[in-house]
Amino acid sequence: MNIIKTLSQNKVAMVGFFVLAIFCLIAAFGPLLYDGSPWKMVQRPFLPPFENSNYLLGTDTLGRDVLAGLIYGTRISLLVGLVSTLIALLIGIPLGAYAGYFGGWVDELLMRFTEIFQTVPSFALAIVIVAIFEPSVYSITSAIAIVSWPPVARLVRGEFMSLRSQEYVLAAKLNGQTHRNIIMREILPNSLSPIIVLASLMVATAILLESSLSFLGLGDPEIMSWGYMIGAAKTVVRQAWWLSFIPGLAIALTVLSLNLLGEGLNEALNPKMSGKREN
């Protein structure tokens, strides 16, 4: 397909893709291949990186293996990022689709609802939700999904509003197609490109949100995560800067690679560039 071809010619996007692929592999197989718990005390505390070949990245304030923490953290970051984005899409797409397709008071009502969620400072809302419902993977994922669906709804609504008056949609109406068919088979497939691009950027934002929450101590106490590692090392940054530095770098790399990929997707899927018209 020519989208994949265009994307594969975009070097920057490909760098993003490969870095991301590596992180995905680590998330999937790392905990199986790397023998070691992120919670167990294995060495003296504050072991600097590259001194002990068994614990390549050293140990933290409690003598726990940093590399193990990093590997387990990859899994949770990507998982929370993906799942919360999926949930946000599941809320945002139908809402935006209904508002945009039917217009009128349905639109008015749904958009006022969306507007409230968009006004509330999202990070603060996420904090409040996680704090009230006790920190856990579930509450964190739901909180992130709850604060990140409004842009999806607005985007989908905009797409549906402009596509619903396209002549091929009118033709489908004249064919006697049902609303469901028109939404699912005529409009949605043609509005997927911007949704895909937005989704890839949302995963990045979700990963940042998750790490910020864990940094504030709102992470799942059962699970090792990058944000938690930085938060725990915050007070000892003068003695052991690498304890904050390494997980931060992992977050930045993941988010950056997602953004690069999203950017590349945007260019590949941009209707202005891809052959919407002949020639």
């Binding site: 396209q166 002549e167 091929y168 033709a171 489908a172 006697g176 197609q177 005529e186 497939p189 919407k276």
Partner: peptide, 25 residues
């Protein structure tokens, strides 16, 4: 319709576009 570029769903084949109506009926 007026606009030959906007009146056909770009993600469907010509066959689907023409046959869709009778199928819906």
């Amino acid at each position: 319709f007026q606009d030959p570029f906007a009146s056909l769903n770009p993600r469907k084949t010509i066959g689907q576009i023409i046959a869709d109506g009778p199928i819906a009926q």
